[in-house]
Design a protein around this nucleic acid. Sequence first.
DNA 1: CCGATTAAAGTCGATATGACCTTAAGTGGG
DNA 2: CCCACTTAAGGTCATATCGACTTTAATCGG
Lengths: 245, 245
Amino acid sequence: MRHSHDRERVAVTVDLVIFTVRDERLHVLLIERGKEPFEGRHALPGGYVRAGEHLDAAARRELVEETGVDAGQMHLEQFRTYGDPERDPRGRVITVAYLALGPDMPVARAGTDARAAGWEPVDAVLDGRIDLAFDHGAILREGLERARSQLEYTTVAATFCREPFTIAELRQVYEVVWGLKLDASNFRRKVTKARGFLVATGAHRTPDIGRPAGLYRRGDARLLTPPLLRSGDAVAAQLTTLALR
Amino acid sequence: MRHSHDRERVAVTVDLVIFTVRDERLHVLLIERGKEPFEGRHALPGGYVRAGEHLDAAARRELVEETGVDAGQMHLEQFRTYGDPERDPRGRVITVAYLALGPDMPVARAGTDARAAGWEPVDAVLDGRIDLAFDHGAILREGLERARSQLEYTTVAATFCREPFTIAELRQVYEVVWGLKLDASNFRRKVTKARGFLVATGAHRTPDIGRPAGLYRRGDARLLTPPLLRSGDAVAAQLTTLALR
DNA sequence: CCGATTAAAGTCGATATGACCTTAAGTGGG
DNA sequence: CCCACTTAAGGTCATATCGACTTTAATCGG
């Protein structure tokens, strides 16, 4: 009992949750929509997948179009596809959501359909001060949860840092993304012990005040062994969404 | 510079990687294709998303259609979307891949477009004895890697077991999915200590031989704390694919 | 030289882990 | 009825890891 009607052809978009650490807070790149629907509302950057285009290529292209930044410096990873038939008032549009992590950078230009683009504190979305268009609020929340868990099991945290970086800078990434304070000494012990996470350059950076800090680059490991787990109590306290990895 | 051509409308399918443990080996549910392309070749069960249908609903519907089993008993989870423009010779078709885990069960019927459906050992696909249609081989491999990592951080292993089950049965799930032998004593200590993983029924099951084993049901925890990690050496040895979670 | 500041390394008790051993509770055979 | 056999369940112990905390190191401004 399959009608031709069943094999609906749908429009496909990619949407990007682009995180960075700026002023000791987690920020997400948002655009202000320049046309209906949701004109004037904030939204995730993204756009239609073109004919014959790979999904990853579309994500990479949108990343460059919205930020003007070389996508090669960023970690880009698909994390979920959203296909609620009612999610877009214009009709059936499914979207493939990507997570992008990178160092702080200026936003070069606004997107094609956007009035403006800029970094916004993630808190502002989570507490409702910024209400995103479509289902982008839910997508952002899931992207954040994914990013948090990625920090535990992989070495992507280092992609938030511009090389070379100090261990204190790396620790700040964990603190900002997880929303927790970490013990500096224990953190150092773990990340330096994890094989392939950090490569010491031998150089040091002398701050305005305090002892100079050793400088590091990303190692070639992608999986973090052993993982750097949030302590059980802390996780339970902040796990509002029960979404699994 | 955006042509109407850019906003291609594409067909969307769901494909399911359905795992179960049978005869102490990991099996995957495959169909034999009844028509071109790839007629006669093995493939993952799946099909077109219908007009107005949620992606999860489509996956659940296909699961029931292919296996005849109540989807409520199974763990079903989206894990990645595949959109290579060349992945389907008929034209642009993107597919949303789902992982389904459940206890061993008879396959009730063949799928609509399928000549036959049945459980096949995962090994047979991994070592090339079964060559899947489309990019289903790659999808299966990624689904397997996802399942392996899910066992570490979540309680889904219990969905492989028909309730009530013994700790030895649960341990066998880990051993079969991970392809490792585990120490029975240490395994017991960990899973019984993890809060919310197992609920003792108080009843016992007397086997043909040996001491009766306590029977358990799934607890309500979905996240496994602390996680049950594969030992570092064992993982490195079998991590052929570097795919992250 | 001193105090302030931050980096880096060390201490230590509590807890977790892996390898191994012992005891428990059934079965069937002689 | 006892015994050998099998599997479940629990215990032992040396080692590794973790979190909280302390100590030492390097640099600056005065």
